[in-house]
Simulated assay, not measured.
Amino acid sequence: MDFAGAYSWPNLSFILQGFGVTLIVAGLSIVFSFILGTILGILRFTRFPLLTQVLAVIIDLIRGLPLLLIIFSIYIVLPQIGIKLSPFWSTIAGLTLFEGAMISEIVRGGLASVDRGQIEAARSSGLGYIQTMRHIILPQALRRMVPPLVSQFISLLKDTSLAIVISLPEIMHNVQILQGHSPNYVIPALLLAALLFFAVNYTLSIIARKLEARRI
Rank of each mutant, 00 (worst) to 15 (best):
S33W: 01
G128F: 05
G109C: 09
I35P: 09
R215M: 15
S113Q: 07
F3N: 03
P79R: 07
A208P: 02
L190N: 09
L65G: 09
I137F: 02
I164R: 01
R143T: 07
I130M: 15
L142Q: 07
F72R: 08
Y185C: 05
V25S: 00
L168M: 11
V200L: 08
I30Q: 00
I206C: 13
T46M: 15
P169F: 04
L23I: 15
L157I: 13
L190A: 11
N174K: 13
M102R: 10
I74G: 00
S29I: 02
P183C: 10
F48I: 15
I119W: 15
G128T: 14
I81K: 11
T38K: 11
T22P: 07
L204W: 04
I83Q: 10
A112Y: 13
I62M: 09
L36G: 00
L111D: 03
I166R: 00
L67R: 01
L211S: 07
R209A: 13
T96L: 03
V25H: 00
L12R: 08
Y129D: 12
F34A: 03
L191K: 06
D159Q: 08
L168N: 01
R144P: 01
G110D: 02
D60Y: 11
S182I: 06
A199H: 07
R134E: 10
P188L: 07
L138Q: 04
I216D: 15
Q80P: 14
I42G: 02
P87N: 06
G64D: 05
S13P: 02
L178Y: 03
Q176D: 13
Y7S: 05
L191M: 13
N184W: 07
F88L: 14
T38H: 08
N174P: 07
T160Y: 02
A194E: 05
A93I: 06
Q140G: 05
A208I: 03
G128Y: 12
L50C: 11
S167R: 10
L196E: 02
I166H: 01
L95S: 01
V165H: 02
L190E: 03
A208Q: 08
F98A: 00
P169D: 06
Q140V: 07
S29A: 14
A101M: 02
H173M: 14
N184M: 11
V77I: 14
D159V: 04
L55F: 09
